[in-house]
């Protein structure tokens, strides 16, 4: 009787684990970023693509999920940053550029927090050559996925 109960408990645990894993893998399959990448390319206009970032952030009970990348900007150039959301995102992706990894000073962002307004892209007229940080996060610390694009004006 005891053994049977343990067996059922363990079976239940692994079944739940399997279900969770299946659900997350199905979502991951839906979010390769390829569709978002295609949408982004059509929005570049006269800007030339430099790099794309495939973003997939999972909910984290401890801290709002975010991902950052080092990026080099050159003075005298105009850069465009485009966050492209997956259609299933509950909240929109925010793309921001900061002075350093501690978010010391913001150099540009796709989200105006004061006005609660998201922009489809933002440009930076760069005057300082250096290495900065691109951050990706979702409004309200939500999970989600999408593609970030970084381009330069020709």
């Amino acid at each position: 009787m005891k053994n049977k109960a343990y067996f059922i408990l363990i079976l239940l645990f692994f079944s739940l684990g399997g279900l969770v894993s299946f659900v997350s893998s199905t979502n991951a399959d839906k979010c390769t970023g390829d569709n978002e990448y295609g949408v982004g390319l059509t929005s570049l206009g006269t800007f030339k693509l430099i790099k794309d970032y495939r973003i997939s952030l999972k909910a984290d009970p401890k801290a709002p999920p975010s991902e950052s990348f080092m990026v080099s900007l050159k003075s005298g150039l105009k850069y465009r940053f485009l966050p492209i959301n997956n259609s299933e995102n509950k909240k929109k992706m925010i793309m921001s550029v900061y002075l350093n990894q501690q978010k010391g000073m913001i150099l540009g962002t796709s989200y105006n927090k004061a006005a609660s307004k998201h922009y489809p892209s933002f440009d930076i007229n760069c005057k300082t050559t250096g290495t900065f940080y691109i951050f990706f996060e979702f409004e309200g610390g939500e999970k989600g996925c999408g593609v970030g694009m970084f381009a330069v004006e020709n």
Binding site: S75, L107, G108, S110, N112, Y119, S121, F122, D123, I124, N125, C126, K127, T128, T129
Partner: peptide, 16 residues
Amino acid sequence: MTEVNGELVFIDKSET
């Protein structure tokens, strides 16, 4: 931060 023709533009005021 400024909006030019609906586009959000950040003008870097830094100096090197």
